[in-house]
Design a protein around this nucleic acid. Structure first.
Lengths: 208, 208, 208, 208
DNA sequence: GATGAATGAGTGTTCATTCAT
DNA sequence: AATGAATGAACACTCATTCAT
């Protein structure tokens, strides 16, 4: 819920400017990695002067961390939707995987996640943030969901329920593979993720 | 007919020196990432002068790439052993996972893999090298092995056979999780990897 | 968002605004020195926007110079009063010293003088201004005064008459000492300046 | 007494390099003041590269502080010599003043002192250092000396004994005047300092 | 081979100044 | 008049790389 804005125009512009900088920063950070990225390139790509960045972000590190945090918000909705649902588990998993392909792999957001994965070890705050805000909030409902599915006989094993990381692992691999090998051996993300669901549920999907 | 060898002594010494530098480099690169690592720190940790590094490696990039390549060699042996075996698949998988835990996760070699994963996108040569030397050599025998197992009924699904990445994904996640969250939420790698085998084989392990 | 103004006059006059800026500038320049002072801090302290400074002063240098010049005006009056007087020299000196303590050392004006002393060498215009407007106007009447006092036997030596800087030197030292050592060894300005008059006149003051 | 040097050549060279940098730094700091001085200019004047400065000094501030501290050492000798002497006070004072003119005013060391005076307020460490190492060590022997002289009747007043700053004040003024007004009104330091001694001792010097 | 002092291009960050609103 | 976002030149400091010893 946005606070009342004293000057809607100005505020909007400032918010836009922030967004432009974050967009440009994503390109540059994704391209070169955090340490090798140059703020001058970020500025150039955003079409602004170098100093302008500092009107919106305290320093390079802060810019990076706000970029990394930015990708977290959209995940909550998916989590909420998932844990609330009573649909059969394979349908849920398929929805989840489809959303991942469409909203992460198919967009620039995948770059943010790759950055989180590849730079996370050097940014304790980001690691903690993701653990606290994403992982520790995601695991309990996921586990509940998967446990229920197991108890209903929809999942042959409780392995994923005990280690929900197993559900996520192939997606992580998709992002990493895409970043490393895409040029000469692009991944068939759909095939891989469908195969993974098959492994989990023990059932082959008959796709329309 | 032996080729003329340069002095065995000198060669051995030089090789030792190389190894010391690579060891030190692993520490520093793992700690700070490629771009932020300082060769001065590498030298200090190796107990040598900065310039000495350049007697053994052309430049920072080369040093890093040779470090990255170094972890590849030991994998061939495992691959060979695996594909030659006729043992039941769950036993093979358990051996493989155990080796991973003992020889990668339990050693500093996990740092090399983490570096390959996190810096790979910025080092096309490394990406290509790993794809060419590891992945493209590993996939066919792995696939054959898993296909055979599926056909013998040891694997309920051919999903892993079609996407051997699914076999590797949890190990990747182990390495990444270890690097990011170990301080406050250490991973139970054995549990996770056993659960994964359970998923693949459909059978719970009865460990002695 | 401007608060409703407490004062009935809607806007400060330009002269008031100038004064506010100069006041704020004195604080900031005194605190950090000319080069390290930031106009943004001046603006913040004056409660105005950064750009507003430029409506009243051409640039940072000009602002500083007008600040430095500002402290000069009040000195003329003292000089005039001094040179016109026929009172005994020790009384005059005591008055002078007392005025210095009350109107310079005891106020923020001492900061202006410290700035003139410490930055003067870097601001030829200020050096020239002070030499032209203060020193070269002050020396002749001072010299006349002191010479007369010497001839009347009120001063045992003509040394100060020949070098009126000797009269000023302890005051300069007071200002500098205050700025450097005040925190841990505050100066007894009254004692020091009284002792100085004793040196000049050869007579100890019997203070009431 | 120099310690045994492990590598006389190297050590001597490094010491020389330090000295060259300090010399160049004195020029630049004296010319522009601390904040406005550019280390690139220091390097250029020393005939070295910018980075070389950092092999010898941690940063700009440290460079400045070591420069400021450097001028302190030579003063101890003078202090020791003075306080040990039993010569008549006016002779001591004349020696002191002469040394000041020759070894401070007549050399680049006066620039160091000007820097200490003008930047001291912004460098608490320097202020404390000078107070601790110079002033607090200088005052007691000076006071003892001047008190003895007063008791022997060589000084008509105990004013300087009580406030030894009065002895120093004219020298401070000489340094400042020299920096600000020298171009158009050079000071007659000898005349001024002699006049000051006359004030203190009540005796005119008959110079040869 | 080994050293480590020296280099200098490169980059994050600051801040006086401008100008559209 | 006043604002404050934007600019971009400037500068401290870093570090891969070289080379004389």
């Amino acid at each position: 819920m946005p606070l009342p804005q004293e000057s809607p125009r100005r505020r909007a512009t400032s918010e836009d400017r922030r967004r432009e900088i974050l967009d440009a920063a994503l390109d540059v950070f994704a391209d070169r990695g955090y340490a090798a990225a140059r703020l001058e390139d970020v500025a150039a790509r955003a079409g602004i002067a170098k100093g302008t960045i500092y009107l919106h972000f305290a320093d390079k590190r802060t810019l990076f961390m706000e970029l990394a945090r930015g990708a977290a918000a959209p995940m909550f909705e998916r989590i909420g939707a998932l844990s609330a649902s009573n649909a059969p588990i394979d349908q849920l998993l398929r929805t989840m995987v489809e959303q991942f392909r469409e909203q992460v792999l198919g967009t620039r957001r995948k770059e943010v996640f790759r950055l989180v994965i590849t730079e996370g070890a050097r940014f304790p705050e980001i690691a903690e943030f993701y653990h606290r805000e994403i992982i520790s909030r995601m695991v309990p409902p996921l586990r509940a969901l998967l446990t229920r599915a197991h108890e209903r006989g929809e999942l042959p094993s409780d392995a994923v329920a005990r280690f929900p990381q197993l559900l996520i692992a192939p997606m992580v691999v998709c992002i990493l593979w895409d970043g490393m090998f895409n040029a000469f051996d692009p991944i068939d993300a759909r095939g891989l993720l469908d195969a993974h669901i098959e492994l989990l549920t023990g059932r082959k999907d008959i796709r329309s």
